[in-house]
Simulated scan of single mutants.
Amino acid sequence: MSTSTRAPVPAARSHAARSFAVRSLAVRSLAVLAMAGLSAVPASAAEKFSYLTNWFAQAEHGGYYQAKAEGLYDKAGIDAEIRMGGPQVNAMQLLLAGEVDAIMGYDFQVLNAVEKGLPAITVATTFQHDLQGAMTHADVPGLAGLKGKTILIASSSHTTFWPWLKAKYGLTDDQTKAYTFNLQPFFADPDTAQQAYSSSEPFQAQEKGVPVHFYLFAKDGYPPYGSTIVTTRKVMETRPEVLKAFIRASMQGWRDYMKDPAPGNALIKAANPKMSEAQIAYGIAKMRELGVLDGDGTVPIGSMTEARWKATDDYMVANGLLKPDTDWHRAFTTAFTADLDAKLN
């Protein structure tokens, strides 16, 4: 699908006094614009497109803010709005109500929506892997070392990664306790481990001077993508060119952000003044270290495969998280990412 906008032909005027010279000038001007690959559509005609992230502005949203800061959306003919999510924001509800055009989503969330007959669909991903993992004290050599440890997890984790972690490493439900997003219980007990996001809890531990390990679940086979772009079938079917242009500009933004994040960081801090330079730098370093944007250079940023979606579906069905007859193919499409070429190197 082409993202170019055809220059409109001016309506014919009936004024007899209009000179041949003026007509010729108008035609030549349009020809020059066309040859230059530009659009004669005024800036006010840019397509509005709103994208709701999954949390307050942070490094893990950097590519979207970078695309905004560099004018990549503007160049694509899009008047893009990047909205912040948060703990009280029901992104899927807002998407289905038509309040936003797309949201930063999650594979489990979309598969569950499809199971219920809701028209959500994933059209691209930010990260090739979910950034969820486990944080342990420095003496734990790997995820297999979680046996016998107290493990702090949120209630929602019982229907996401916990069945996978439990089955893979022979863990038991009686090892778990509620994670309230307060790290003091972890700091106080050397036999406690907890769920963690790559750039959040480990950064807090570093700030406290507590040595820890972070183990990314995806490195051991946890299948879902991370921070995907989710829209509705209505948007996908009625605005495909705008959607594709947004995806392409966003992935170019991610490529640029990982090279020079300063423009994106300025917008991140403007949107979220509590975000420190140190935490942003830590987040960027972790994304590089874990190779989550382009699979360590193996795939274009934003791309997805049917095989990965099948693996996530298999996991959910096997653990009773999804009905076996759910048509998992309806949860995603690769039509908008098949020709992406943005890589970090």
Rank of each mutant, 00 (worst) to 15 (best):
T3D: 07
R6Q: 13
P10R: 02
R13L: 12
S14R: 13
S14M: 08
S14F: 11
R18L: 14
R23W: 11
R23S: 14
R23N: 14
G37Q: 06
L38F: 09
Q58D: 14
H61S: 11
G62W: 07
D79I: 00
M84K: 10
G86N: 10
Q88P: 09
Q88L: 15
V89K: 08
M92N: 10
M92G: 12
Q93P: 02
A97Y: 07
A97T: 09
G98P: 10
D101K: 01
G105E: 08
G105R: 01
D107F: 03
D107H: 09
V110E: 01
L111Q: 07
N112D: 09
I121R: 07
I121V: 15
D130Q: 06
T136W: 02
L143I: 02
L143C: 05
G148T: 05
S156D: 13
S157N: 12
S157A: 15
W164S: 04
K168A: 08
Y169T: 04
D173I: 03
A178R: 15
T180M: 14
F181K: 14
N182I: 14
Q184L: 12
D189I: 09
T192S: 08
Q194S: 15
Q195P: 00
Q195E: 14
Y197D: 11
P202C: 00
Q206I: 05
Y222V: 07
P223C: 06
P224D: 05
Y225I: 08
T231M: 01
K234G: 12
M236S: 13
E237I: 04
T238C: 01
T238G: 04
R239Y: 04
E241W: 02
V242P: 04
I247K: 10
D256R: 15
M258W: 01
G264V: 02
A266P: 04
L267W: 03
I268Q: 01
M275T: 11
A278G: 05
A281M: 02
A285Y: 04
E289F: 03
V292L: 13
L293R: 06
G295L: 05
G295K: 00
R308K: 15
Y315G: 02
G320W: 00
P324G: 06
D325A: 10
T326D: 00
W328R: 10
F332E: 00
T333N: 00
D339V: 04
L340G: 07
L340D: 06
A342G: 05
N345L: 10
